[in-house]
């Protein structure tokens, strides 16, 4: 349990740092008081309505991506399964863009995360069916490329057709992700679905542990592959769909975090799932702090930082599994 405690402490520290580091310097004591509504109402407004939703979303979205990555990798028994790489995030982004541009999201706020969820579900289903229970790397990556390319192209097309001239400029947001200037309403929209999805994924712990012994052994232990698959599909689609609907597609979190944490938790999926949620939250909080420290006035996208960290690791993993890919 030690790694979990350490990760919780790290996440909590980064959450606090995310609240205290901003574009405008607010002294530590003033900022903490303002967080609870005391002191200058302007500071309270900045802390409660600008910085708090930003930090909450970074933590929630990081947890969603981290745990979904760990769960997919556990089920497919393939370290390359990651929501961004297999096209789930891109599909969720397409769903969100369609809900926004058709006006569905304006008429019915929940339509935004739910449409993203439906598209994410379709993508996970497609990948799981194509890759099969053994999760062959080649199929996984090729299917991911195809789904990402198609979803990305349709997102661009939809935004290019919008009568709002600024819509096309947000293609980069949907592909790279950002938690800048999101409000509490985005948190309320995404949090229930993300937390529900994470809760469902946590029920997979025992099943995924059994699955490490092989399908037959798992079956003889009374684990139903079909039930695991259904819960994985719904849980990860809910978490990734809702996360992507409000922050865009942030890649590589689900790849990097389980990879780093796996040796620390003794390669047990049951312990990797909660650890990856905390690790993902910590990683995204750190990345978001970095966007504000490196280029404060450029709205640097989270996906840029994650790709700089994640892409070399991805190459390393491909190198390690290249024999299987052939």
């Amino acid at each position: 349990m030690k790694p979990l405690l350490a990760l919780s402490a790290l996440t909590a520290a980064l959450f606090l740092a995310s609240l205290l580091i901003g574009y405008s310097p607010i002294p530590l004591g003033t900022a903490l008081a303002a967080l609870f509504g005391a002191g200058d109402p302007l500071n309270a407004m900045v802390m409660q309505d600008i910085r708090l939703p930003r930090a909450l979303l970074a933590a929630l979205v990081g947890a969603a991506l981290g745990m979904s990555g760990a769960a997919m990798q556990g089920f497919l028994r393939n370290p390359l399964a990651e929501p961004g790489l297999i096209g789930v995030s891109a599909s969720a982004a397409l769903g969100a863009v369609l809900a926004l541009q058709t006006g569905l999201a304006a008429a019915y706020a929940l339509a935004l995360p739910l449409t993203a969820l439906a598209f994410a579900f379709g993508a996970v289903l497609l990948v799981v069916l194509l890759a099969g229970p053994r999760g062959a790397s080649l199929t996984l990556i090729l299917a991911g490329i195809a789904i990402s390319a198609l979803a990305g192209a349709l997102t661009s097309l939809t935004l290019n057709l919008s009568p709002n001239p600024y819509a096309a400029s947000e293609i980069i947001f949907w592909m790279m992700g950002s938690v800048a200037d999101r409000s509490m309403s985005h948190v309320w929209l995404a949090a229930p679905l993300i937390l529900g999805g994470l809760g469902l994924l946590l029920t997979l712990r025992g099943g995924l542990d059994a699955l490490t012994l092989g399908e037959d052994a798992a079956h003889s232990l009374g684990v139903s592959l079909g039930s695991i698959r259904t819960r994985l599909l719904i849980g990860s689609a809910a978490a990734i769909g809702a996360a992507t609907a409000v922050t865009g597609a942030v890649g590589f979190v689900g790849l990097v975090v389980p990879h780093i944490l796996r040796p620390l938790v003794g390669h047990m999926p049951s312990r990797l799932l909660p650890a990856s949620a905390l690790g993902g939250a910590a990683m995204l909080l750190a990345a978001d702090i970095a966007t504000r420290l490196i280029l404060p006035e450029r709205d640097l996208k989270l996906g840029v930082l994650m790709a700089i960290v994640g892409a070399p690791l991805f190459l390393h993993l491909i190198y390690k599994t290249r024999r299987e890919i052939g």
């Binding site: 574009y23 600008i50 541009q101 999201a105 709002n164 600024y166 400029s169």
Partner: peptide, 27 residues
């Protein structure tokens, strides 16, 4: 680009914005 929190802390008497478009955009 002016970060939202900097705008708020500058505490202007008036904040002027353009008219909204029919279609949404994050911008």
């Amino acid at each position: 680009a002016l970060p939202l929190e900097q705008l708020i802390l500058t505490d202007p008497d008036l904040i002027l914005t353009g008219q909204p478009y029919d279609a949404p955009a994050r911008a």
